[in-house]
């Protein structure tokens, strides 16, 4: 009986490793493309954070690159910076190496940090499963929204619902985003084998 309870406890612990809306996300310290470490604590005046797990190689991540740039442009000054994190193992996908991240950040003129989850720990703590995968946090790192950037990856012009922008607006007005969870197709995160 005790064994069964212990097993149940263990399995529930494993499940709770994935962040849900309302949970407090942990801070991290990851290397940026300028070789400096970045933490959420480096942003004492932020009202929230648009944490996006993304990468170089994934076609869906690429479709959203320009939209991420626009989001940062629009919301960083309002207190909601984009923090991009590449969770992939470059041994599996060489295109997602720190060197390639530097190139991408430079060529696309990213104004937001593009961090490398070298130990592949942060994405696990957040429960990200794919790229791109968004976690909107408030200033206390409470998760307010998880999921997609909008409802149409392929055709930005045909987007009907800007899920993430709506969520940021809600958060800014002190309201809970609705929907608070959405889904998107993405590339599975490439783990070290």
């Amino acid at each position: 009986m005790i064994k069964v309870l212990f097993f149940l406890l263990l399995s529930s612990l494993t499940i709770s490793a994935q962040l849900k809306v309302g949970d407090i996300a942990s801070d991290f310290q990851l290397m940026n493309t300028d070789d400096k470490n970045v933490s959420l604590a480096d942003y004492p005046n932020a009202k929230g954070f648009i944490v996006v797990f993304t990468c170089n190689h994934c076609p869906y991540a690429k479709m959203y690159e320009d939209r991420l740039i626009d989001l940062h442009k629009k919301y960083a000054s309002k207190g909601y910076p984009v923090i991009a994190i590449n969770p992939n193992d470059p041994d599996v996908v060489p295109e997602d190496s720190p060197a390639e991240m530097k190139k991408r950040s430079k060529s696309k003129k990213f104004k937001f940090p593009y961090l490398f989850d070298a130990k592949q720990e942060v994405y696990v703590k957040y429960g990200a499963t794919k790229t791109p995968h968004v976690f909107l946090l408030d200033k206390n790192r409470m998760v307010k929204y998880i999921g997609a950037i909008d409802d149409n990856p392929r055709e930005e012009k045909q987007v009907k619902e800007k899920f993430l922008e709506n969520a940021v607006s809600s958060l800014d007005m002190g309201k809970d985003p609705d929907p608070s969870v959405t889904k998107a197709i993405g590339c599975s995160i490439k783990k070290k084998s």
Binding site: K130, D151, P153, K183, I185, S188, I189
Partner: peptide, 16 residues
Amino acid sequence: PNVFIDAIEPAWLGAI
């Protein structure tokens, strides 16, 4: 995707 993923399988998070 936000519509078709859940319609196909609610447990699906969207990765392939």
